[in-house]
Measured scan of single mutants.
Amino acid sequence: MKVIFLQDVKGKGKKGEIKNVPDGYARNFLFKKGLAVEATPANLKELE
């Protein structure tokens, strides 16, 4: 799953980066803790 990092995550990505991460990791950790959002067209547009 492609995500946009909202904060630096040690060993995974830095704020503003767009990266592919495993689905479970994204849903169960990154999204729940507010560290990233899914890289949807709407979210990508907001990032610009």
Rank of each mutant, 00 (worst) to 15 (best):
M1G: 03
M1A: 04
M1P: 04
M1E: 03
M1Q: 05
M1H: 04
M1L: 14
M1T: 14
K2R: 14
K2G: 04
K2M: 15
K2I: 14
K2N: 12
K2L: 15
K2P: 08
K2W: 15
V3D: 01
V3H: 00
V3L: 02
V3T: 01
I4H: 02
I4Y: 10
I4D: 00
I4R: 04
I4S: 01
I4G: 01
I4W: 04
F5D: 00
F5Y: 08
F5A: 00
L6E: 00
L6P: 00
L6Y: 03
L6R: 04
L6A: 03
Q7S: 09
Q7V: 15
Q7G: 06
Q7Y: 14
Q7K: 15
D8W: 08
D8R: 04
D8Q: 05
D8T: 10
D8P: 05
D8F: 08
V9E: 01
V9R: 01
V9P: 00
V9K: 02
V9S: 02
V9M: 04
V9Q: 01
V9L: 06
V9A: 02
K10R: 13
K10W: 14
K10N: 10
K10V: 12
K10P: 15
G11W: 08
G11D: 08
G11L: 05
G11S: 06
K12P: 01
K12W: 15
K12M: 15
K12R: 15
K12Q: 15
K12N: 09
K12I: 15
G13D: 01
G13T: 02
G13N: 02
G13P: 00
G13K: 01
G13Y: 13
G13V: 06
G13W: 13
K14R: 13
K14P: 01
K15G: 04
K15M: 08
K15P: 04
K15Q: 08
K15L: 06
K15F: 04
K15H: 05
K15S: 06
K15E: 05
G16M: 05
G16K: 01
G16P: 00
G16D: 04
E17N: 04
E17Q: 12
E17A: 06
E17L: 02
I18V: 13
I18S: 03
I18Q: 05
I18H: 03
K19Q: 07
K19W: 08
K19R: 11
N20P: 07
N20W: 15
N20Q: 13
N20D: 14
N20L: 15
N20E: 15
N20G: 07
N20M: 15
N20K: 10
V21E: 03
V21M: 12
V21W: 03
V21S: 02
V21R: 00
V21Q: 05
V21K: 00
V21G: 00
P22H: 10
P22A: 11
P22F: 08
P22E: 11
P22S: 12
P22I: 06
P22L: 08
P22Y: 07
P22G: 08
D23R: 13
D23S: 15
D23K: 13
D23H: 13
D23V: 15
G24N: 13
G24E: 14
G24W: 15
G24P: 10
G24H: 14
Y25L: 08
Y25I: 07
Y25W: 11
Y25V: 07
Y25N: 05
Y25F: 12
Y25K: 05
Y25T: 05
Y25S: 04
Y25H: 05
A26E: 08
A26R: 02
A26L: 08
A26F: 12
A26S: 03
A26N: 03
A26H: 04
R27T: 10
R27F: 11
R27L: 13
R27A: 07
R27Y: 12
R27D: 04
R27M: 10
N28A: 11
N28R: 10
N28G: 11
N28H: 11
N28W: 12
N28D: 14
N28Q: 10
F29K: 05
F29E: 09
F29H: 10
F29T: 07
F29D: 07
F29P: 02
F29S: 05
F29N: 06
L30P: 01
L30I: 01
L30H: 00
L30R: 00
L30V: 01
L30M: 03
L30T: 01
L30Q: 01
L30N: 00
L30F: 02
F31H: 01
F31P: 01
F31Q: 02
K32S: 09
K32E: 09
K32W: 08
K32P: 15
K32V: 14
K32I: 14
K32N: 06
K32L: 13
K32T: 10
K32M: 12
K32D: 07
K32Q: 10
K32H: 09
K32A: 12
K33P: 02
K33E: 12
K33M: 15
K33H: 15
G34W: 05
G34L: 09
G34K: 11
G34F: 10
G34Q: 09
L35H: 03
L35P: 01
L35V: 05
L35K: 03
A36T: 00
A36N: 01
A36S: 02
A36I: 06
A36W: 01
A36V: 06
V37P: 00
V37F: 04
E38H: 07
E38G: 04
E38N: 05
E38V: 07
E38M: 10
E38T: 05
E38A: 10
A39R: 02
A39Q: 03
A39N: 03
A39I: 05
A39T: 02
T40A: 05
T40I: 07
T40Q: 04
T40W: 04
T40M: 05
P41Y: 11
P41A: 14
P41W: 12
P41E: 13
P41F: 11
A42N: 12
A42W: 07
A42Y: 09
A42E: 14
A42I: 09
N43V: 12
N43S: 09
N43F: 10
N43R: 07
N43L: 12
L44D: 05
L44E: 07
L44Q: 07
K45M: 13
K45R: 14
K45A: 15
K45L: 13
K45P: 06
K45T: 09
E46P: 07
E46A: 14
E46G: 11
E46M: 12
L47T: 07
L47S: 07
L47G: 06
L47I: 13
L47R: 07
E48Y: 13
E48R: 06
E48F: 13
E48S: 13
E48K: 06
E48V: 13
E48H: 14
E48P: 10
E48M: 14
